[in-house]
Amino acid sequence: MYDTPKLESETVTDEVKISARGCQVHYGDNHAIKDVDIDIQDKTVTSFIGPSGCGKSTFLRCLNRMNDTIDICRVQGNITLDGQDIYDPRVDPVQLRARVGMVFQKPNPFPKSIYDNVAYGPKIHGMARNKADLDGIVEKSLRRAAIWDEVKDRLGAPGTGLSGGQQQRLCIARAVATEPEVLLMDEPCSALDPIATAQVEELIDELRQDYSVVIVTHSMQQAARVSQKTAFFHLGNLVEYGDTGQIFTNPADTRTESYITGRIG
């Protein structure tokens, strides 16, 4: 089932959403990301692939400044969202993260009810004027995450009681509830079984209608299935970036070729 051809790309726009120039990341003494330049397009699924420790997750976390929460991490270079530098001192990371949402490797629902999990973001950002508004946002988000039908009768139940796949879709619902423009996903399926993975992948393709989605994945098949653009990272360098089809069928760099044929990794 992993050899299914990638979903055909329909509406690849050329509008650049996020752009990075000369991005460097240091973890203490470790030079984790070396001089990365990349343009991520709107309404496109972009996947970051590469062997473990190549820096793809680190780079992903630069895009919504989650690395700020780690004391020893330093980011240099220039990253813009819609042309605005996100590391500008005037930028409030809190506002930035409302626009660049994130879904994590392990499903991490809060120990609250399903409803409160989804309502958390809209509440803190003041997106609802009243309870009815909030109810609407929660329902809409759960529907977008394709989990509404499974949980609509138990919105008051704790989010931690759901199955792994449901939890991850709940986390996606939680992320889309703040109506972000970009959705970052850090190996969202690595803790899930194949059926749940398939559901989430289908969902990612749906989400492309409205968002720019960036997904870090260990699975080349997954990258091939869900993304239109693929970036290959190796030892902190962005080795190759291009259309997914081209990367997987006709890589320009020998390292990319070695990786996708299974020689490094």
């Binding site: 919504n64 994590f104 803190i124 939680r174």
Partner: peptide, 27 residues
């Protein structure tokens, strides 16, 4: 309290104090 909880909240754009008051302390 697992770091993943904090990441989840911060990733949604919550401030640290919102994360502490609404996620960490209840947990």
């Amino acid at each position: 309290v697992p770091q993943a909880m904090r990441d989840g909240s911060l990733g949604l754009g919550a401030t640290r104090s919102e994360t502490v008051r609404q996620v960490v302390l209840p947990a």
